[in-house]
Design a protein around this nucleic acid. Structure first.
Lengths: 252, 252
DNA sequence: TCTTGACTCCTACGTTACGTCATACTTTAT
DNA sequence: ATAAAGTATGACGTAACGTAGGAGTCAAGA
């Protein structure tokens, strides 16, 4: 004979749950002491096991009660039904995942008019920047990296990129030279270096001016991350480059 | 400006839902008439669209409220989170399906000690029955049918079979010669004919005596479908055969 | 023996997203 | 003018407990 506390620890449920199951007649204690304490024996524990099993399978407690008080074949029928129901649920969730993924993609595409971050564009900027300083082995690295990526991976990178801008948008109240902002710039640079090419201060600077250049890219960044984010980011990048390489800007 | 009724029809939701959304501040009407009637304009309808979209994705209304009142990037982050959450749910449900399927199998196997319905056993009975009347082309049909089935298909047939016995178990209060019971016998015969071999009255009769023969098969049937079902089914089959071919029994 | 702390009881409200009355008022159609 | 249809508010019900409160119970130490 175990008390509610002991049973609750054994079964990994709360005492309240035992009270509740008693109150709805799903699991009555084997006996009660004169003081009204509930006591459960092994058989009751077995029934509780069954209850928890069916509960795990998302059966409503009402149904569990019926199932446990009915013959074997009813249980199997119930199980089959539940399997069907779970399969339907799974299908539904799969549809939801597709829907949500689609919406996110629409949102991302619409807000940043995806071409703006299309590899080829960045490619061009990289080329231009590289040309002014000569072609290096790093450019080949970039080509390899970008050619091996799937459409899906590109999209994920675009999203990550937008999230970095979203972070800048949250820092608008800070000064561009603030440590937190400068760290974000460093993060942006690291991100570009990892996924595109070795992002030198010169390239970074060039990109910064592109962000704030007033084109659709500027608009998209501001629409997504908050008005003024593009300009703020550009300013932060200028600060970063000034302290990074001695103050020269690659744009003139 | 549309009234609650019009909006509800347009959006496919209830008037109560509009009341509720107003009460929790999720969607306030554009204005209210002097009599207190709610009126919604196009913008409100747009917001409602968004609400229903996020609701479809199983966002809690509280979260939807926050999301709609926050900038774009928050929405995308929320979407990503929700996608993760939905993926977890999907995984969970897949586990549940496996669990339920496993339990059902255990139940079926344990209750009917699956060998009893193993094709080979029925095979033997079929052979014996056939031998007394000579080998016919139907036997080859049976061999082909049973050899081409997968383990899974066999199990499904076993379950279907048990469900037929469960049906007999529900008819215990009827007389074996009752029309409903006799129809069940016909169903059993059709089932065997479809999945195993052309089930003549002789074979059917033989199987009936096997069910009630007192072995493990009898016990399993009774345990699963209710005490006395095996004997009841056998009696019903005798009745069926008596009216079917003029009264002779194939067993002596 | 008294007290303390751990344990138990029951009552009752909070949770989510509405459905379902019940009652009373307004608008529209005849 | 009157009936039908629409609207508003308020309150209770749902599933499966969580949480809080107040009070009684039990075993053990001082």
């Amino acid at each position: 004979m175990k008390t509610v506390h002991e049973v609750s620890k054994l079964a990994g449920i709360s005492v309240r749950t035992l009270h509740y199951y008693d109150s709805i007649g799903l699991l009555s204690p084997t006996e009660t002491t004169e003081a009204g304490y509930r006591l459960y024996d092994e058989e009751a524990l077995g029934r509780l096991q069954c209850i928890l099993l069916f509960r795990e399978l998302e059966f409503p407690l009402k149904d569990i009660k019926e199932i446990l008080d009915s013959p074997n074949f009813e249980r199997n029928k119930a199980l089959e039904q539940q399997i069907e129901l779970l399969k339907l649920k799974k299908e539904h969730i799969e549809n939801l995942i597709d829907l949500a993924t689609g919406i996110r993609m629409i949102g991302v595409k619409k807000l940043m008019s995806f071409e703006a971050f299309d590899t080829r564009k960045i490619d061009e900027y990289a080329k231009q920047a590289k040309e002014s300083y000569g072609t290096t082995p790093a450019y080949k690295e970039f080509e390899e990296k970008s050619k091996n990526r799937s459409k899906e991976q590109e999209q994920k990178l675009g999203i990550d990129m937008m999230n970095i801008f979203a972070d800048f948008g949250k820092l608008l109240e800070h000064a561009p030279e603030d440590a937190v902002v400068q760290e974000k710039v460093a993060e942006l640079r690291a991100f570009l270096t990892e996924h595109y090419y070795n992002c030198t201060p010169e390239i970074l600077s060039s990109l910064g001016e592109m962000y704030a250049g007033g084109g659709s890219m500027t608009d998209n960044i501001n629409a997504y991350a908050g008005e003024g984010t593009a300009e703020f980011t550009a300013q932060a990048i200028r600060e970063y480059c000034a302290h990074c390489t001695g103050g020269q800007h690659s744009l003139e």
